[in-house]
Design a protein around this nucleic acid. Structure first.
Lengths: 343, 343
DNA sequence: GGTCGTCTCGTAAACGTTTACGAAAGTTGC
DNA sequence: GCAACTTTCGTAAACGTTTACGAGACGACC
């Protein structure tokens, strides 16, 4: 069923049918209705290849993820919920969303050049942004509009949305200091993911505000995974001059930290306070409940959709590239208590 | 950069260029080399719209997921790893993989009809298969080849791969019975997802083999989520005539079950034995470690890739539709102990 | 030397859509 | 009643590719 068959069935020309289907002006209301009716009746949907070949646009947004990393930054429902809200918004604006998975054995840059050249999307949302990100340099050279979830230091003409890792880390320090903690450890990612740098910056800022000198041995780099959390917990609990508090730049590590603590007879909150990153369904069922930060995933998804479509706007002001930092709100938890022997 | 510019640059016709790029016979080795060299130099990649418009095929496989369900059957790294292996296989066969997310406010059938009609993929892999699945009936009517991850009872000309839910449930019962359990509860999904039926069937088969009568009150339906697990744990622990063992059709519920037990002063293994479904990174860090089943995610992903490409084979025998059940291997865990008061 | 076959390549049609352009019909204003 | 305009629609070109077809060059063979 193509547009010609539909036109023949209606005894009108394909030009008129196309105009009717695309809500172009200059088609009689009566014929408009006839066309739309016949289209739904015959189940006609425009062929995407033909359309995008002619228009040079696909009405599709690509969301690039990297699969295969067991230490991926968001192992839980994060993307399911965010993508859902984003997809909902895009659908309202008559855009489609496809997820483009770059597999672990593929070169991300090469993967992107295929995506770009084949022209299957009108714009891209990039995730797992690195501090120095070759993909950004490459996209900047191409003319394909894109945005990133997560800031990068690589320059380029793009918009970004980032969670307020710095603010969260700083607030975590503040909350701990308020209770009397002064020896505060922090778990950081062991790779170049941008969030690690921002989290560290917030941590340092918090310490500076409280007049606490930095102890480099308290900055611990582990994979962002359950297993990494286990290693982190072991290291922290086994340190000479045990810290009284531990901040986590990712909630994924929390379960591992708790397990390591349990093995060593340590209880979160009582012995070492813990502040996790994002509140998620699992957090509720860890004992004691970790202090953490709440993020509105729906709002984030919608903002992603809005931001990426803004890139495509012909309006200069709307289409302007911009950055946005999404705040999170602190959620109290039993894992954060005053230290047993306050300094 | 299109094929005409590339051809002009080489002073040959676009026909020859196309033949060279597609490894068609009848092109002089020397020109072949020249074309390939120029293509990489100028960064030429065939435009997907033009190609698939002409060929009627896109060389792309679609993987359909449903987003937004916090109770999705696989909230953890499951898809990341499976998709990675599948994508790797498809890439070797020069196919691309895109993930098509159907958002929660969209009608899955309508979503599919758009996907089908727009012709953006050559074949589909469907997930979250229902026992009665309207999407299957619809795909069967269309000519688009597809397969499902998970069996359905809806007939149609398609291949499927399913985890051995029945075998796992049966084995779980056997392991529990071997230790002396006779009052065995089971947590089942509260929706129409096909796996629930197979899990239940295996559970019933296991009971029958052991000569244990079925107690309907021990079949408990909860959402497949952490919160659902919490509810499940509460219900089981609070039952008059408390069961001595609890089987879980999904590992996602395990953390919630443990938390509910903890609140009620019950310990998994000691008071109520627990057998979870799939081993995942989180399982290691629950205490006591749940007995569960190991699944080779890489192999599953590769099989998905092989199976979906087989659908496209012109060879009658290779292209035959077939079903396949993936076995899982039992992993002992401290959560499974003899009952305190053996019957 | 003519016929045939092989190798290599150019030409042009086709895929399904959108849209610039012009034609036909109808409407308005004088 | 005619010019000018508006409304509505049909025609055909264009998007970038693949591929059927045929043409030209060349060698082999009788």
């Amino acid at each position: 069923m193509n547009i010609r068959r539909l036109a023949d069935h209606l005894n009108i020309s394909i030009g008129t049918v196309s105009r009717a289907l695309n809500n172009r002006p200059g088609v009689h209301p009566e014929t408009l209705e006839k066309v739309l009716k016949a289209a739904t009746e015959l189940g006609y949907v425009a062929n995407q290849s033909g359309r995008s070949l002619r228009r040079g646009a696909t009405n599709t947004i690509g969301f690039v993820i990297e699969t295969g990393h067991p230490a991926h930054q968001a192992g839980d429902q994060f993307f399911y919920v965010v993508l859902d809200a984003m997809n909902l918004y895009l659908a309202e604006q008559r855009y489609d969303l496809v997820i483009l998975p770059c597999h672990s054995a593929d070169d991300p840059v090469e993967f992107l050049s295929r995506v770009i050249a084949r022209g299957i999307v009108d714009a891209l949302v990039m995730t797992a942004t690195r501090r120095v990100d070759h993909r950004i340099a490459q996209l900047a050279k191409s003319k394909l509009p894109f945005m990133t979830l997560g800031r990068s230091e690589t320059p380029g003409n793009y918009s970004w949305i980032d969670l307020d890792f710095e603010g969260v880390a700083r607030r975590s320090v503040q909350e701990a200091v308020k209770l009397g903690h002064r020896r505060i450890a922090v778990g950081l990612p062991d790779n170049d993911v941008a969030l690690g740098y921002h989290y560290k910056a917030g941590y340092l800022k918090g310490l500076a505000e409280a007049g606490i000198p930095v102890d480099e041995s308290l900055l611990i780099r582990v994979p962002t995974s359950e297993l990494g959390g286990f290693s982190l917990g072991k290291q922290v609990a086994g340190m000479a001059g045990q810290p009284t508090a531990l901040l986590l730049c990712s909630e994924v590590t929390a379960a591992g930290v708790y397990a390591a603590f349990a093995e060593m007879g340590i209880e979160a909150g009582r012995d070492i306070s813990v502040v996790a990153f994002r509140e998620n369904p699992l957090m509720r069922f860890l004992n004691p409940a970790p202090a953490c930060f709440r993020l509105d995933l729906d709002a984030l998804g919608t903002r992603l959709g809005e931001t990426v479509l803004d890139l495509l706007s012909p309006d200069e002001e709307i289409g302007r590239r911009r950055g946005e930092i999404v705040p999170l709100t602190f959620v109290q938890g039993k894992s954060l208590q005053p230290p047993r022997n306050p300094a």
